[in-house]
């Protein structure tokens, strides 16, 4: 039962005594190094946050290496100018269904790949994984044409096309993200003990029940990890949103950041504030799911 071992170990069971080991000089050195690296890593972000809290008036006159001009106005202005409220909602409309659909479809394929040992599986894995790695800009023009040709009923899309509809945007994100999830999930599922299925088959469980009631519950950590990553990626994605939509009011929040950049003039402090606002949801998701994160990504392929 290799997964069981993995799980227990990461929860700290066998290693618990190790953690309480006293501080040797070597350990202190290690901590010192890690703290230094962490601070260095945090610094650019902290600097952006700091910038967002200062007035343009002050920093333009005194430069950024100065002290003063503290204000929260940038946040208020950013929120209003870019109409973040509305656009956050748009991002939710796109991200939530896209992530759920990606995980569902990817787990289906991954299940088949992991559950059976057909020759075709490898081709399948290849088709999905490679699709995730293709450069997106390269596919824009054919995709745009496709989107303007596919009709949708009016209740689904104002434009009566895939173009300029959330449906289209959700599907394109799912298509591009499936590959990575299939890859991770199939590896994870392969590491599950096969006896489970033998037992389920003796009970007469159908393939669907094996998938939904046996495999999926065991994949929770992997699904949580993938959900975190996918939320981050799909939420941050704005290339497709801006080229496959034409109604500014439907754009997701990441692209509405552009509204803060003037045609001729850009106020860095204001853009910083907007950037911080935009980054908050991904940070929240990360903190919420962090516990599952590393464990879930365990690709399951390195059992001893």
């Amino acid at each position: 039962m290799s997964t069981a071992t993995i799980t227990r170990r990461t929860e700290g069971g066998p290693d618990a005594p190790q953690r309480r080991r006293r501080m040797t000089p070597l350990r202190m050195l290690l901590h010192g190094f890690l703290i230094a690296v962490s601070l260095a890593w945090l610094f650019p972000i902290a600097w952006a946050v700091l910038t967002s809290l200062r007035s343009y008036e002050y920093t333009a006159a005194n430069g950024y290496v100065s002290f003063g001009g503290w204000t929260l106005d940038n946040y208020v202005t950013a929120w209003q100018t870019a109409e973040f409220g509305k656009h956050f909602l748009n991002s939710v409309y796109i991200t939530v269904p896209a992530v759920l659909l990606t995980l569902f479809l990817a787990s289906c394929v991954a299940f088949v790949i992991a559950r059976f040992s057909w020759k075709l599986n490898l081709v399948l894995l290849g088709v999905f994984t490679a699709a995730n790695l293709l450069p997106q800009q390269a596919l824009l023009i054919p995709l745009f044409r496709l989107f303007t040709e596919v009709p949708l009923p009016e209740f689904m899309s104002d434009s009566e096309l895939l173009y300029d509809s959330y449906w289209g945007l959700i599907l394109i994100n799912v298509a591009f993200q499936c590959g990575f999830c299939v890859f991770v999930l199939s590896n994870y599922m392969k590491a599950l003990p096969r006896d489970l299925y033998e037992a389920a088959m003796v009970d007469g469980a159908s393939i669907w029940r094996q998938y939904w009631q046996v495999t999926m519950p065991l994949c929770r950590p992997a699904l949580a990890a993938l959900a975190t990553l996918e939320v981050t990626w799909i939420y941050n994605e704005f290339f497709w949103a801006t080229v496959l939509m034409r109604t500014g009011d439907k754009f997701p929040v990441t692209s509405s950041l552009n509204n803060l950049r003037g045609e001729f003039f850009t106020d860095n402090n204001l853009v910083s504030a907007g950037s911080v606002l935009v980054a908050i949801p991904t940070l929240v998701i990360f903190f919420m799911l962090q516990r599952h994160f590393v464990r879930g990504l365990t690709l399951g392929a390195s059992k001893g």
């Binding site: 745009f144 303007t148 434009s159 096309l161 173009y163 300029d164 801006t242 080229v243 034409r246 109604t247 500014g248 009011d249 754009f251 692209s255 509405s256 552009n258 509204n259 950049r261 045609e263």
Partner: peptide, 21 residues
């Protein structure tokens, strides 16, 4: 009025005009 930020608007103009402008 359908406002799109000027940069995106300009970059997408070809597609925009061929879609449903």
């Amino acid at each position: 009025v359908n406002t799109v930020d000027h940069n995106t608007f300009q970059e997408n103009i070809n597609n925009y005009l061929q879609g449903k402008p």
